[in-house]
Computed example of a mutant assay.
Amino acid sequence: MKEEITLDSVVSSAPDLILYAAPLMIGLALLEFYYSWKTKREWYEKKDFLTSLSIGLVYVLQGLVTKSIMFGLVLWVYNIVPWSIPTNWFTSILCFVILDFCRYWAHRYGHEINFLWATHVTHHNSEKYNLSTSFRLSWTQQIKVIFFIPISFLGFNPIVFFICHQIAVLYQFWIHTELIDRMPKWFSFLFVTPSHHRVHHGRNEQYLDKNYGSTFIIWDRLLGTFEPEREKSIYGIIDQPKHFNPVKHVFHVWVDIFKNMRHASSVREAARIFVGPPSSLKKIPKQQRRD
């Protein structure tokens, strides 16, 4: 019979890498900001940077509470299944690869389903692309923990999952830059690079809904969502906010979803709005709103 793992044991055995890395990430973003200003590039805009920084700091502080809930669910699933996978270097790498596949689908559905888009749009609603863009992590994105349940169900140790998850999040930091042009071909064939991710953040027609990979770009190549960088990306979203309010940047799609649902003619239509594609959302004119 396998030994039950508690949340306390996960927290004590797996350090919070993101919390420790935060000062270094902010420092590197400031250096890139300075380099952009010194070389007269337009990678940064002061208000946009402060918005990204505000969103990121709240996310880190919020994570001190919400991670317990998120990993509590992962832990609960692991403890109720009767099997487990031994922990060693091979199974740890296997856990990371399977986790990355789950992250691909979490990311992809985050662009295809309204309520998941609401948890992800914050990461895209900047017209700049720089290291600070990686700080734009929605305060509601913990909903996507449902995509990671298979990891626990398969029997991977939650401590291994916790570490792999943090490494995957940290990998995302360096790919948010225009400073790095192209990586070697062998690397770009397997791994997500800044070039790949600039495409993902572009709202150019041919770039929309492409390159969902988190660490490995191979999933996009296999599943038909890969697009190489052919022209400069135009960053932001189709319905681009014209303000720098961090709270509105986090919640504006949630507001649109619920306003659309309130105008639905039936419960079934409201449900379709909630799980429908982002293209189905309509802007409700002020004079027609019920709020």
Rank of each mutant, 00 (worst) to 15 (best):
E178T: 04
R272I: 00
S152D: 11
V267S: 11
L116A: 09
C102D: 01
I159T: 15
H165N: 15
Y34H: 06
W76P: 00
N204Y: 05
G213M: 07
L222C: 14
R230W: 06
L19Y: 13
G236C: 07
F147T: 06
M70Q: 10
K232C: 07
S138I: 01
Y129C: 04
P23Y: 05
V250K: 09
Q166V: 07
E42D: 15
V74L: 04
R136C: 11
S92G: 07
L50W: 14
H124A: 05
Y104V: 02
L154E: 00
I18S: 10
R268W: 14
G27H: 09
I234Y: 02
E229G: 03
P278A: 00
I238W: 10
V65W: 12
E205F: 14
E178K: 12
V121Y: 12
Q287F: 13
G155A: 12
P277G: 03
L131E: 05
E229S: 05
Q141I: 12
D256R: 15
I273M: 02
A14E: 08
I217L: 04
I159V: 15
F156S: 01
S138K: 09
G202F: 00
D8M: 15
I149L: 04
I149N: 01
H249G: 00
L208V: 09
R198Y: 05
H249P: 08
F274I: 00
T51P: 13
T193Y: 02
N260A: 08
G56I: 05
K46L: 12
L131M: 10
W37P: 02
G27T: 12
T91V: 06
L94Q: 14
E3I: 14
A22Q: 15
R268Y: 13
P15E: 03
P158F: 03
V267I: 06
L190S: 07
W219M: 04
R230S: 02
R262H: 12
F191D: 03
E127F: 05
S9K: 10
F115T: 13
L19F: 09
K248I: 07
F115M: 10
E227W: 01
K128M: 11
K185M: 12
S195E: 02
K259Q: 08
Y235V: 08
L50K: 11
I151S: 04
Q288V: 03
L24Q: 11
W76E: 07
K40M: 15
T177A: 14
I175K: 01
Y235P: 09
A168P: 03
Y109L: 10
L61M: 13
K286A: 11
Y78M: 10
H176I: 04
N88V: 09
I93S: 08
A168H: 11
V253W: 01
V247N: 03
S9Q: 11
Q62V: 02
P278F: 00
R221Y: 05
G202N: 08
Q141S: 15
V255H: 14
K47L: 02
M25H: 09
G72L: 05
I175W: 00
V192C: 06
S266M: 12
W89D: 14
A264C: 12
K46T: 15
F71T: 03
T177D: 10
G110L: 04
F96G: 06
F153Q: 06
L50T: 05
